[in-house]
Amino acid sequence: CTSILDVIIGNNKNSLNEYSTSVSRADILNTINQLTPLKFEKFVLLLLSNVLKQENIRADVSYQHTGQTADGGIDGTVIVNTRLKGSQEY
């Protein structure tokens, strides 16, 4: 999941360049579609936390998976702690 996440959000430019010639958008979507419900929920939380971290460079961003799978939703929270705004939960 982490290498796919790096490609999706461009976290690691070397990784993006490495995968851009060998992995298509369809390959990425296919891999995501093959994740188990639990891994998909954790993937979404990891993706959201990484996006929020990129938007808040100096923030402390963490996530926690809080629920069961196969109940129709993503169960978890992403917490962003900043000096100016304090703690925000998503």
Rank of each mutant, 00 (worst) to 15 (best):
80 V>W: 00
70 A>G: 02
29 L>A: 11
40 F>C: 11
26 A>G: 12
74 I>S: 01
46 L>V: 04
53 K>R: 03
72 G>T: 05
39 K>A: 09
36 T>A: 12
48 L>G: 04
34 Q>M: 14
40 F>D: 13
40 F>R: 12
81 N>R: 05
52 L>A: 12
70 A>F: 02
31 T>K: 06
49 S>Y: 00
79 I>D: 07
81 N>P: 10
79 I>E: 09
63 Y>L: 03
46 L>I: 12
22 S>L: 15
47 L>N: 07
47 L>A: 06
61 V>A: 11
78 V>T: 01
77 T>A: 11
60 D>Y: 01
79 I>K: 11
81 N>I: 10
54 Q>S: 14
70 A>Y: 00
62 S>V: 00
64 Q>D: 08
78 V>D: 11
42 K>V: 08
43 F>D: 01
62 S>R: 10
22 S>G: 15
55 E>V: 04
71 D>Y: 12
39 K>H: 08
72 G>V: 05
29 L>N: 14
42 K>N: 14
54 Q>D: 13
44 V>I: 15
71 D>S: 02
33 N>W: 09
70 A>H: 06
79 I>T: 05
40 F>T: 04
61 V>I: 13
62 S>G: 07
23 V>Y: 09
62 S>Q: 07
33 N>G: 10
24 S>Y: 11
61 V>K: 02
27 D>W: 07
47 L>K: 00
21 T>L: 10
68 Q>P: 00
39 K>G: 04
22 S>C: 12
58 R>Q: 09
65 H>R: 06
73 G>I: 03
60 D>T: 04
38 L>C: 12
81 N>Y: 01
31 T>I: 06
53 K>G: 01
41 E>N: 15
31 T>F: 13
29 L>V: 14
60 D>A: 02
30 N>F: 13
52 L>I: 09
36 T>R: 15
72 G>K: 08
75 D>W: 01
59 A>T: 03
79 I>V: 04
45 L>E: 13
58 R>Y: 12
38 L>P: 10
42 K>D: 14
59 A>I: 08
77 T>W: 03
75 D>S: 05
23 V>L: 14
66 T>E: 04
36 T>Q: 10
65 H>N: 10
42 K>F: 05
40 F>P: 06
67 G>M: 02
40 F>Q: 12
30 N>R: 15
21 T>R: 15
35 L>I: 04
60 D>H: 01
36 T>P: 14
69 T>A: 05
27 D>N: 15
33 N>H: 09
65 H>W: 07
69 T>G: 00
49 S>R: 04
